[in-house]
Simulated scan of single mutants.
Amino acid sequence: MAPEMSRPGGRTARVRAAVLAAAGDALIELGLPGLDLAGLARRAGVGKTTVYRRWGTVAAVLEDLVSDMVETSAPRADTGDLDDDLLANAGLVRSTLTDPRQGRLLTALICAAVDDAGTARALRRFYDARTAVWEPCVTDAVARGDLPADTDAAAVVRAVSAPLYHQLLTRGEQPGVADARRAALVAAAAARAGAFAAPVSAGARRTS
């Protein structure tokens, strides 16, 4: 697990930004096996001792990199309309995946997560955090009566991004505007049809 870190300022912030940028570049170019702290220090132009003292392991650097991605992610849309909100979400996912650096970085992190449990945990936290940010788009629609009361908000949000990631990771094709629009509108239609009803627990089934 990454060490506890207070939010840095001044020189500390510049060092963190430089090391995390270097880590992202190295992960894209070399993959997880090519990363080491001394190499990251050289890339970042900072002292090796500083990097060892602050992070200690490559895994801690990658966890901090993912935390930074959460901190700097764009806010959710709040249009008051489910379709428009999900279209905005799909557009954001598409723009991230097609960004020359961010798309490659996310792909590299997903590959690294296959072999490294720490990276996998960090990436899961990233996606859980981003999903939670967008869940109010769905819960607000439930409150307006636009969706069934038992709609699983997280499942709807994941359904928007899933086909876009699938297209990139399994076909090597960057999702286009039409792909993003289709993903959002299909998720919205399925949600209205009750396809994302929250699962009923075993205990609830026994007492019903």
Rank of each mutant, 00 (worst) to 15 (best):
D146L: 01
A204I: 10
L92T: 10
A2C: 02
G39H: 05
P175K: 02
N89V: 10
A197S: 15
E63L: 06
W134K: 07
E71R: 15
A184L: 07
V138P: 04
D128W: 04
L97V: 06
L87V: 13
R171K: 12
P175C: 03
P100Q: 09
A202E: 13
V200F: 00
D115L: 11
H166E: 14
G91P: 03
A44H: 05
L20I: 14
R14D: 10
A159P: 03
D64Y: 00
A153H: 01
G91M: 02
T107E: 10
R171Q: 14
A117Y: 09
S6V: 14
Q167D: 10
R14C: 02
V19Y: 03
T49W: 02
A193D: 13
A195H: 11
D36S: 14
A189Y: 04
V200H: 00
A188E: 01
V70H: 02
L27N: 02
V138Y: 04
A18K: 07
Q174T: 13
L185G: 04
G10A: 14
D64T: 15
R42Y: 00
A113R: 08
A74M: 13
V177Y: 08
R43T: 07
V138T: 04
R182H: 15
H166F: 14
R125F: 08
A22T: 08
D116A: 13
R16Q: 15
I110G: 09
K48L: 08
D68R: 15
S208T: 15
F196R: 01
A132M: 09
G31D: 06
L106F: 12
D81G: 09
A162H: 09
G91V: 05
G176V: 08
V61R: 01
L27D: 02
T119E: 03
A90V: 06
V160C: 05
G176S: 07
L20P: 06
E135L: 05
L32I: 11
